[in-house]
Simulated assay, not measured.
Amino acid sequence: MTTSPAEANVELDGINYFTLLEEPTSGTKDAPCVLLIHALMSNLHMWDDTAKALQKAGHRTLRYDHVGHNSTPPAKDETASYHLDDLTRHAHQLVEARTGQPYVKALIGCSIGGSMAFRYASLFPNDVGGIISIASPGLKSPEAAQKLWSERIEQFEEDLKTGDDKLYHMTVKRWVPGERPEDDEARKLALQHVKTCSLPGYKVMADSIRGYDYSSMVEEIGKVKMLVVAGDEDQAGRADVLEEVASKIPGAEFVVMKQTGHLPPLQKADAFNELMLQFLRSWP
């Protein structure tokens, strides 16, 4: 179902993806497009400020909701599982379905989107100009995360039974740590976003992120211009881990953002947008 020219649903492998393709503030409809992939349990609105900055700079933006998140319903077969490779291929197919061709100027992904960005670079090096991978757990799923995801799914199930919001608040606290007043709006928005995630969607995405390993693909990943971004207060996409990841990828740049947690584009929008646009201007 299409509700406006910018919005469209695209069905892939039993997932009816909700997508949003927006034109630049000024410029042509065939302006360079940037693909944005949001964090697990967030939604495409975590990119609102990012998209505005890109559109103002003359880019089109394509974003979408993950399966079972916000405006994308759970998969038709709720027992279906999807590897992170499958979800990455879906992202590539969404580009072609919405823009009519496979190439994007850049892909910017956060958290699970940051991990998908690494794989996108190796799968589709000729279809993307550059990659910004933000707050990824790394080139492989951390072993310690296996138990954590199971515990979080159990908490989600318990919250649905009791009517509590424990997982929602735990997630926002991880994403935007501390109690700085300047981060209050980011916490408020993040809480709104997590409440749009369904349990089936959470399970599918959690299973996909705890089952990947791209550590042997660093040479392939390095074929695409790469910027790796971390927040210094993020315990999921740790700065020390991502600095090491960047050092292994040929030509990759690394930046750590200060007083920042797991969602730099949401928590520190202005600083991230400046960093992003500088990166995008570094090649034609």
Results as ranks from 00 to 15, higher is better:
33 C>V: 09
215 S>T: 11
16 N>A: 08
66 H>V: 09
79 T>I: 01
191 L>G: 04
237 G>I: 02
215 S>W: 05
154 E>H: 00
107 L>F: 03
191 L>R: 10
175 W>K: 02
141 S>C: 10
151 E>C: 00
133 S>D: 07
159 D>M: 03
29 K>G: 13
142 P>W: 06
35 L>K: 01
131 I>Y: 08
127 D>A: 06
143 E>L: 05
196 T>K: 15
66 H>N: 14
199 L>M: 11
230 A>F: 01
39 A>D: 11
34 V>Y: 01
87 L>V: 05
207 D>H: 13
204 V>G: 00
181 P>R: 09
202 Y>F: 15
121 A>D: 03
179 E>H: 13
172 V>Q: 05
66 H>E: 11
195 K>P: 06
262 H>E: 02
54 L>R: 11
104 V>D: 10
124 F>K: 06
152 R>G: 06
155 Q>A: 14
79 T>V: 00
205 M>E: 13
273 N>A: 05
182 E>S: 12
210 R>M: 10
121 A>H: 00
115 S>K: 03
139 L>I: 02
206 A>N: 08
249 I>Y: 06
224 V>P: 00
156 F>T: 05
143 E>M: 08
49 D>E: 15
238 R>Q: 15
184 D>K: 14
213 D>E: 07
238 R>K: 15
105 K>I: 01
14 G>D: 08
254 F>Y: 15
260 T>P: 10
32 P>V: 09
246 A>F: 03
60 R>K: 14
131 I>Q: 07
271 A>W: 03
173 K>G: 12
80 A>C: 03
274 E>N: 07
123 L>A: 13
159 D>Y: 00
